[in-house]
Amino acid sequence: MKNRSAFLLLLPGVLAICLFLFFPLLQTIWPTLGGSGYSHFLHSGYNRNVLGRTLLIAVITTALALGLGLPLALWIARQKASVKSLLSVVILFPILTNAVVRNFTWIIILGKDGVLNKVLLGLHLTQHPVTLLYTNAAIVIGSVYLFLPIMVTSLIGSVDELNIEVEEAAAVLGAKPWTTLTKVIIPQLTTGILTGSILVFAGAMTAYTTPQLLGGNRHLVMSTLIYQQAMTLGDWNQASVVAVVLIIMTVIVMGLMRLVTRWLDRRPANA
């Protein structure tokens, strides 16, 4: 009886996921199996470039988001409650603002007649406008801008759980602020750092809007390649292949990260 109620409550959700997610995914993956799609994809130097670019952008974005986000998260988490709430809202606001808007800001800044070039020319640091937009660097900057708040949010949660007396103990025992950060604070934040990194890495690897707006047509990544293959070139099979490769990459990355988390959790310190 009880099981029947549970079954009925779960059924709509299970059906929805199976019919609307797994079924279409199978429809996409099935035709690519057995054909030459994958070997064709991997044999193309152009495609390998796109794959490499996608991974590189995701790695650099994650590292930068972590490097910039950690100090900010530490600082925000240690403010008094009122200031902290306010700053958390300031961090949340970009997350909830449309990605087009957030990327658009960097078109204005990085463009040929953009704000940054004006500053560089005004300071005579350069004679001619520098190409900043439609580069890999532009995609990285845009991605960091897009995902930094997410990193900060997950780190703040982790910092909040720290016992401040542990850091005081380190200081009393002679640890300088830098030592306290690297030997005491960061080792305790591994869970938050990993969570944040997974979110940022997966986000940066699969984002569409940023590479589309800031990378242009010559700096494709996997997600923009899918769109181009399907809608511009009409090669649906190849688009499916790219999609499957992107899924596999995401799964591998998630799996690896989870493995690392589990390895770290073997240490009973987090119990």
Binding site: G13, I17, L25, T28, T206, I226, W236, A243, I247, T250
Partner: peptide, 20 residues
Amino acid sequence: LFLSPTFIPEIVIGFALYQG
């Protein structure tokens, strides 16, 4: 299972829905 949509890139979901 119910969180699985987050494991699939959004662009792929859109593409698969269109195709499938």
